[in-house]
Design a protein around this nucleic acid. Structure first.
Lengths: 143, 143
DNA sequence: TTACTTATGTTTATTGGTGAATATATTCAT
DNA sequence: ATGAATATATTCACCAATAAACATAAGTAA
C-alpha cells in the first residue's frame, strides 16, 4: 500500500528519483500514464494490467468512456527504474502535467501520483477546505 | 483503549516521544494522518489498514471521492517508534496541524490525537462551554 | 568519419533521518 | 523531605538518501 507525499526534483535529463520507501513495492517495471486533475499516475505493471483490462472493456458506444480510456491507454508508457531508482519521464507527459523542477510524488494505495509542486499545494488547500464537511463521510467509513 | 492527555515537546529534528502509557498498546508500527479540526491522528497499523482499504476502493471517477482519498492516503505516513519511543513527524503534517514545540497527545479510544498545545486549550474551553447542550445529544445516542 | 546531440551510467557532496548517550524532570517509596 | 527509579528532553555523531555534477556511450546529421 502506497501512502505519504514527497517532494523530489527532476534533473535536467528529465529523470525523477522515486522515493526509497516506494521502490520495493513498485518493482522495477512500471507504467506511467496521464492521470486525472493534471497529474500523472504511476503503476506497478501488475496493477496496470488489471486496470488496462477494465479500460479495454468499457463500452465503445459511450463517448466519454471512449475518451477516458483513450487518454489513459494511449497516454501510457512503460518505464523502468534505473540503478538509482530513477524513471525517465516522456516529454508529452511532462508537458501534460506541467512538471517543473520540483514535483510531488504521492502514494495513493495502489498507485503513485506525480504532481507539479505548486499545483499540488493549490489542490491541497482547495480540497482541505471542503474536507471538513466531508467528515460525515468519515463516519460512513467507520472512522 | 487510549485515554488521557499529555503535553510533550517536539525536538529540533521533528521527533516526538509518545507517552509511555500508550506505547504498548500502540505497537511499534503506526500510521499518522491528517485528522479533523487541524489535529493529527495516530493509529496502530491494524486500525489503519482497515480504514485504508475502504479509502482505496472509493471510485476514482468521482472528483470529491478522489480528493478525499488523496487527502487521507497521501496525507498518511507510516512511522515507527524508535528505541526511545519517538516518532518522526513529516513536514507537511507538522504544518497542517501547525505544531510548535509544545504539543498535546490525547488518547481517544482507538487512536491518539496530536494537537498544537494552544489550539487544544482553545478547543477545550470552547467545547466545554457547549458541553451541557451536547448532553442532550448524548442522550439521543444512548449514553 | 567527424562533430554534435541525446540518452544512459557513475561519482561525489549535501542534506536530513537515525541511533545512542547524557542531562533534566517527574514520580513514588521510604 | 530525601533519594531511587523511571520517564522525558536534549545533544551529538553517524549513516543513508537524494541532488547535482560529471563521464561515457550511442545515435544522428553533415
Amino acid at each position: 500500500m502506497f501512502i505519504g507525499e514527497y517532494i523530489h526534483t527532476v534533473d535536467n535529463k528529465k529523470r525523477l528519483a522515486i522515493p526509497m520507501k516506494f521502490r520495493k513495492e513498485l518493482g522495477q517495471k512500471t507504467v506511467i500514464t496521464r492521470g486525472l486533475d493534471n497529474c500523472l499516475f504511476l503503476y506497478p505493471v501488475k496493477e496496470w494490467e488489471a486496470l488496462a483490462e477494465k479500460l479495454g472493456k468499457l463500452p465503445v458506444g459511450q463517448s466519454d468512456a471512449r475518451g477516458f480510456s483513450r487518454m489513459m491507454l494511449a497516454g501510457a508508457m512503460d518505464v523502468e527504474l534505473d540503478s538509482l531508482g530513477r524513471i525517465l519521464i516522456p516529454d508529452y507527459l511532462k508537458q501534460y502535467a506541467s512538471l517543473g523542477k520540483k514535483v510531488v510524488i504521492a502514494g495513493l494505495y495502489n498507485r503513485l501520483e506525480i504532481w507539479n509542486e505548486e499545483k499540488w499545494q493549490e489542490y491541497k488547500t482547495k480540497t482541505l477546505e471542503t474536507v471538513e464537511k466531508m467528515g460525515e463521510k468519515l463516519g460512513e467509513l467507520g472512522v
